[in-house]
Nucleic acid binder design. Structure first.
Length: 560
RNA sequence: CGGGGCGUAGCGCAGUUUGGUAGCGCGCACGGUUCGGGACCGUGAAGUCGGAGGUUCAAAUCCUCUCGCCCCGACCA
């Protein structure tokens, strides 16, 4: 491809409304343009990257026996109504009507439609297993699109679905997908982790996420260096470091106007980890008191798992229900349901005295209060893994996920088969997603420097960039054209910067768009029959003979 | 949805406090000189000041409403 013929609108300055590095660089390097919040246009370079990612996805999916199909994006409401998600999902679903007032939605994902197809076509255990996938646009009316291409309202997803007669079959397809995903992300040059995740609204019981470490990510995972435990903090289990044993009598402490853990902790000169944080929430079954240690945060989702949906109590409600101002609440002497984090089980603590301006020292679980014990705190760096080693928490971009769905969708849509004994059973399903644009963004987040992007070879928009410095020098142009043809004939993807630009401009643009290898053709070197190969990542320059260029490029591509 | 910020030329911004004929840098077009890390000189084109309404002799500037974009949070199949 000739640079002069290609649309690569690079920008000298960073766009004002971009924050994430990948976002800034994608815009600056002319890979994408924004149409509206959460809607992006992929320009030629950006689209080439997605193409290469898609090629890897297809190869690896085919290698585990998945078959590519293509599903509509416009879905009739009835199917989503049958699984209940038409009502469960709120504003995030784009809904519309056709000219006859029939309800439709735009597909956020394709469990329903895939299952519908299976329900019509699969009859017998002999038809199973099946694995179908597509690389297709999804639409979600995100509450807050952000970080460029990382969270958008319209995006492409590789989604596959497995259909099995048995749990063992599902397990096998699940593992096959996990393996394929490892190969895919590895080939795309990403650092990534597989972590346990919360299946959420997908239903089913078992799922993992694939995460690319990056400060631009929206998720956090807890990792153990000791045993390899890794989980999304949404469900990560951890134990905080235990407190030193103290020998406090049960006694009141006057704590005038000291309400927060921090205030009381400073006032009494006792570390926050010796406090019980009492949080009143209102559930559908009434008020519940949640207790975590003073140095911890309450994990809303974990608590929801125990008490169902809930909201924090208002100040007036605290006063009404517990008879004391928020800030001086303690777990003692209440008749409402109490859920406590297990780290409060042993040792003595300080808690609110249920009396204005007083706290109590020496509070002991099971003696001074009773509670149901559940892990309801947010795991944080420094907490202990169940193996006894410390955990650390890392920010990540979710680039893929795998779910065991079970029969949630097949039961709802009557996708059944007859087994060997002629017994009708629901098909057992799995669902597996990957976001190609997130792979691209994660690759940039993980590989860049002050000059621009540094693409992994496998997904770079081109394999090499040819940079003839002086387009007015006949020999330079001649050599560039010759190398362009020679490299292209080796099926190497070449970008030839044939623009009438000064060397500096070409160098800057080349570094910005980040093609991994630059071949620089300069007048002076050429007189000695030499050209330079520059590695974008290391900036290392190597002079080689013109005749050796093709062989050298071939080696680089082969990873030698 | 709650909180905050911002909408002025293709891009990045100043001008708004204190109303008085819209500016800078980059980019773009043309001419010349340059030519291995975003050149220089000259000339030029380009703006409904997000939109609507209002106040005023006069509004980018003041008032009201509205739309859009970004960030934090909530939400996130």
């Amino acid at each position: 491809m000739r640079y002069s013929k290609m649309f690569i609108p690079t920008l000298r300055e960073a766009p004002a409304d971009a924050e994430a590095i990948s976002h800034i660089l994608m815009v600056r390097a002319g890979f994408v343009r924004q149409l509206a919040a959460g809607l992006y246009i992929f320009l030629p370079l950006g689209w080439r990257v997605l193409d290469r990612i898609d090629a890897i996805l297809k190869e690896e999916m085919e290698s585990i026996g998945a078959q590519e199909i293509s599903m509509p994006i416009l879905h009739p409401a009835e199917i989503w109504q049958q699984t209940g998600r038409w009502d469960v999902i709120g504003d995030e679903m784009f809904r519309l009507k056709d000219r006859t007032e029939r309800d439709f939605c735009l597909g956020m994902t394709h469990e329903e439609i895939m299952t519908w197809l299976a329900s019509r076509e699969i009859r017998s255990y002999r038809d199973l297993p099946q694995v179908w996938y597509q690389i297709q646009t999804k639409l979600r009316d995100e509450a807050r699109p952000k970080s460029g291409v990382l969270r958008t309202r319209e995006f492409i997803m590789k989604d596959s679905y497995s259909f099995d007669a048995t749990e063992e079959g599902l397990d096998k397809n699940y593992q096959l997908h996990a393996g394929a995903y490892h190969r895919i992300f590895g080939r795309c040059g990403l650092k990534f982790l597989q972590v346990e995740s919360d299946p959420g609204m997908m239903g089913g019981g078992y799922s993992h996420e694939f995460m690319a470490p990056s400060p631009a990510g929206e998720d956090e995972v807890a990792l153990c260096d000791g045993c390899g435990y890794s989980a999304n903090v949404e469900l990560a289990l951890s134990a905080p470091l235990p407190n030193e044993t103290v020998d406090w009598p049960y006694e009141e402490a006057h704590t005038p106007e000291k309400r927060t853990v921090k205030e009381v902790s400073n006032f009494l000169k006792v570390n926050p980890s010796y406090f019980i944080k009492s949080i009143l929430v209102i559930t559908e079954q009434g008020p519940v008191l949640a207790l975590v240690r003073g140095d911890q945060e309450l994990h809303e989702k974990k608590l929801s798992g125990v008490v169902g949906s809930h909201r924090p109590a208002q100040k007036t409600e605290v006063k009404e229900i517990l008879g004391v101002e928020a800030g001086f609440i303690g777990p003692m002497g209440h008749s409402i349901r109490v859920i406590a984090d297990p780290c409060l089980k042993d040792g003595l603590f300080i808690a609110g005295a249920n009396k204005q301006h007083y706290h109590i020292r020496g509070v002991k679980a099971d003696r001074d209060f009773n509670a149901e014990w559940h892990d309801i705190h947010i795991a944080k760096s420094g907490d202990m893994c169940s193996c006894g080693k410390p955990l650390h928490v890392e920010r990540v971009i979710e680039i893929g996920n795998i779910f065991k769905l079970g029969t949630k969708y097949s039961s709802a849509l009557n996708a059944v088969f007859l087994d060997e004994n002629g017994v009708e059973k629901p098909i057992i399903m799995g669902s597996y997603g990957i976001g190609p644009a997130r792979i691209a963004a994660a690759a940039i987040e993980q590989n860049n420097d002050k000059d621009g992007m540094i693409w992994p070879r496998s997904i770079a928009p081109f394999d090499v960039e040819l940079i003839p410095l002086n387009m007015n020098d006949e020999k330079t142009v001649e050599t560039a054209e010759m190398l362009y043809k020679a490299l292209s004939s080796e099926r190497i993807e070449v970008l030839l910067d044939d623009r009438e630009e000064r060397a500096g401009v070409k160098f800057k643009d080349a570094d910005l768009i980040g093609i991994p290898t630059q071949i620089i053709i300069g007048e002076k070197n050429l007189r000695e029959g030499l050209i330079e190969i520059k590695d974008r990542k290391t900036k290392e320059l190597t002079k080689i003979k013109v005749e050796e260029v093709v062989e050298k490029a071939r080696q680089l591509l082969a990873g030698l």
